[in-house]
Structures are given as structure tokens and as C-alpha cells.
Simulated assay, not measured.
Amino acid sequence: MKIASVRDEDKRGRLSSVSMAIRVLKAFEGDDAEIGVTELARRLGIAKSTVHRLAVTLLAEDFLEQNRETGRYRLGLGLFGLGSLVRNRMDLSTEARTLLMDLRNKTDETVLLAVPAGPEVMYIRVQPSRQAVRISAEIGMRAPYHSTAAGRVMLAFLPESRIATMIEASLPQRTPKTVTDPEKLQRLLGNIRRLGYAVEDEENELGMRAIAAPVHDAQSEVVGAVAVAGPVQRLSLKNLNGFAEPLLVAARAISARLGHRGSLSVGDS
């Protein structure tokens, strides 16, 4: 039998609070747009003081709003923002599916669709190469911004202030080729903006090269990146750059489906 420590008890307490907060939010799944503390406590079978404490926390995060006249609570815009983010990612993945398959067929290399995921990028769709030797990638896999083609091409089109913040942080040396110097990385990002795509040469993983182009939404914000990746023994830098045209065409076609309007020529940004 395991003896529970104070740390274990604290952890269980935190998890319990998270669970209760989720229950509070789910209480609004019915027809009532606004619910008071007393009614929430009754429905959830917990003390009013606990409901009040949870509501204050959820208010601070914009997950709940309070009607100042009645004191009742309703779901907040913070949840709407998260829901919109999930929906946008689902829309992006759906709209990109056929175009990613076409790009895989043209290049015969693994094609990936990545999106921003906090301090990293996350791959939300993968079309594997049909070659016997190919890059192994899974949906949900995360990778750094600074050492990947997909990450750098998204990073390049962020506002300068955000770029500075992200590259001033400690940048891990993934391989001997990884660029970790902020000034050199800034120059690389400038070149990416000029070309409209990014190239990765064994900087995140030895034995792999990749090329990526940005995906824009209707507001011209970069919401993702399309990448083509393969092993170095098959993908010379010349071969990799030869994928730029079909890659850019695919990325901009996906962008057009999301409402963006832009040209399709290589080198435009």
C-alpha cells in the first residue's frame, strides 16, 4: 500500500478543483442562459461557498460572465475564443485534406500540415510518402519553431514584437546544424519572407530535410504551414527547392479556401 504524501494530497486537491470547475461550466449546457450560485450549488450538489470560489476563478479567465443586475452567471467569451480556435483548426484540416494528398502525389514525399500550439508547432494532418524509406510523423506530434521549416515559416510572418520575444528565449540545440543565435535566426526569417517559404536542412533531426510554406486565413493571419519532408539520401537541397512551386501553389490554394486572397507565384509573400 502506498502512503499518500502531502504533495499527493495537494495534487488531488488541484485535480478535484479542475473537475469541479468543468462541472460548473457544463451546468450551462441546458436551456438556462444564466444561473445563480444557489441554483448551481443545488444542481452540482456542492456548497455555495465552493461554487462562489470556482465562479470567481472562471470570471477572472473570462470563462464566465456575471450579470451585475441579477448576480447570475453566464458563459463567457473566453470559451467562445477557445471554441473558435478548435473550429478553425478543424476547418483548416478539412479544407486542406485533398490538396495535401495531391501535393504528396506530386512530390512522393511525406506532407504535413502544422498549426501554432503555444511555444511549439503541432502537426494536425500527415500524408505519408509511399516510398519504402520515409519520414515517420504522427498527428499531434509537436516540434520547435526555430528548428523546423513549418515553425520558421509561421514565425517569419508574425509581428516583429512577437518574433523578438520568441527568439530571445533559450533556443535548444536540436542538432549540430540548429540555428540558435537570435541575430542569425532573424536574418533567416527575413529571407523566408522574401522567398515565401522556409527550408530545413537537418536542423531539427539529423537525416531529414523539409520545406514549408505558410497558410493564411481571410484576415491574412498565418494560421498554419504546409511542409514536405524526406530523408537526406533522397532529398538534396536542389531537389528540395524544386518542390517550392507545387508547395506554394498548395499552401495558397488552402489559404484561398479559408478566404484569403493572394498570388500563386514563387517568391511572392
Results as ranks from 00 to 15, higher is better:
A198E: 08
V223Y: 11
L195F: 13
A212C: 05
A213Y: 09
R194M: 13
D201H: 09
L206H: 07
V199Y: 05
D201P: 05
V222S: 06
V199F: 10
A210E: 04
G207T: 15
E202L: 14
S220R: 04
A229T: 07
V222G: 13
E202P: 02
H216R: 13
S220A: 02
R193T: 02
Y197A: 01
G207M: 12
E203Q: 10
A227S: 15
V222F: 02
A218P: 03
L195G: 14
P214Y: 04
A212H: 08
V215T: 03
E202N: 07
N204M: 06
D201T: 08
A212Q: 13
E203G: 06
A210K: 14
A212S: 12
V222Y: 12
V199H: 06
A213F: 05
G196K: 05
V199A: 12
V222H: 03
L195Y: 08
R194W: 03
A229C: 05
A210T: 11
Q219M: 05
Q219A: 09
E205T: 01
V228P: 09
A210M: 12
D201Q: 08
V228C: 11
V199S: 00
I211H: 14
E202S: 15
A213P: 07
G196W: 07
R194L: 01
A218E: 11
V226A: 15
E200C: 08
E221N: 01
Q219F: 02
S220V: 12
V228G: 07
D201Y: 08
P214W: 02
R193K: 13
G196L: 00
E205W: 13
E202D: 15
V199R: 13
A225I: 00
S220T: 13
N204T: 06
S220E: 07
V222A: 15
N204A: 04
